[in-house]
Design a protein around this nucleic acid. Structure first.
Length: 297
DNA sequence: GGTAGACCTGGACGC
DNA sequence: GCGTCCAGGTCTACC
């Protein structure tokens, strides 16, 4: 079946896909030819379905197998969250309007960050981005999905992201040695076990009314989530008060404002401080001169 | 509160 | 093919 879901305008499908690298990590699949996004989704009752998501005139449309009414509602709800279809970007655009390195942002309806259907999946994937190369993040995620995800009945090669319950039963040794998570294995296992045992409701973070500072403290109580990962997760939650400062950020700020001299995290923070609650989004979508030059060379 | 070192993997490099 | 070095955030112990 095929159905459409409208987005709060302005909306740009490709801008969401390109907002970060999640589309390269299973169970997402980016189709370079069509520009569409695939995703293998496990519904709450355990059925695994495949989604082919593309742009529609006023939002997105999704091609999938036959769904009953409650399944269709669940898929619509998941996609609305994943693409932040309800997000109101007008205050952000008002704050950045006319600022030179950001003029492309409103033109291309940027500001939404692609999310996973569950915050559990986003936390795990974020932990797997820490202290490693992006190619290793893609590999670790693929291992997790391939080894522990529920398969699609029509194509068992395609699997959904593992549930907390499934991961909670896996040994740390296996996560370490077979899934190749290394020292991250106990962090992933601990999170899965806490969520599985209902000792931590990570999905509640999606609708939390906590001030961002408090939300950040809660996120940093999760093993494996430090300042960088917390800022990244806050961005996913639509809170742009903190910067995910990694080595890339240090390099960009060094090149942009310090003539290539080594900079500290505090200097990165200072560079964006004036943007207040929007600093995360401003940083995320900044048009870096260093990258522009690299492209033109 | 700040700092140093350990953690682990895989890619790059030299031999 | 093998060994070594390095990059990448977080955690823990220590000051």
């Amino acid at each position: 079946m095929l159905f459409a879901i409208s987005a709060r305008p302005p909306f740009n499908f490709q801008s969401v896909l390109q907002s970060h690298g999640w589309g390269q990590c299973l169970p997402f699949r980016l189709d370079d030819e069509t520009g569409n996004l695939g995703y293998t989704l496990r519904l709450s009752r355990g059925r695994v379905i495949d989604l082919e998501i593309s742009e529609s005139p006023d939002g997105i449309q999704v091609q999938t197998g036959q769904l009953n009414a409650s399944e269709k509602k669940e898929v619509s709800s998941a996609l609305t969250w994943m693409f932040a279809l309800n997000m109101d970007l007008s205050p952000f655009y008002e704050a950045i309007r006319g600022k030179a390195p950001l003029v492309h942002v409103e033109k291309r309806a940027m500001g939404r960050v692609l999310r996973s259907p569950t915050f559990f999946e986003d936390i795990i994937r974020t932990i797997l981005t820490t202290n490693t190369l992006w190619t290793a993040t893609i590999r670790m995620t693929a291992n997790l999905v391939g080894q522990f995800g529920d398969p699609l009945s029509s194509d068992p090669e395609r699997k959904a992201f593992p549930t907390p319950q499934r991961l909670a039963t896996v040994s740390e040794t296996r996560l370490r040695e077979e899934t190749r998570l290394g020292y991250r294995a106990p962090y992933i296992l601990n999170l899965a076990q806490r969520v599985s045992a209902s000792n931590l409701d990570v999905e509640a973070f999606k609708t939390s009314n906590l001030p961002t500072l408090d939300l950040r403290k809660e996120l940093m109580k999760i093993q494996g989530v430090g300042p960088y990962a917390a800022a990244n997760l806050l961005m996913i939650l639509g809170r742009g008060d903190f910067l995910p400062i990694d080595t890339w950020a240090l390099k960009m700020v060094s090149q942009e404002w310090h003539a290539g001299q080594t900079v500290t995290p505090a200097q990165v923070q200072a560079a964006f401080e004036k943007w207040g609650e929007w600093k995360g989004l401003v940083y995320w979508f900044w048009d870096w001169a260093y990258l522009r030059k690299a492209k033109s060379d």
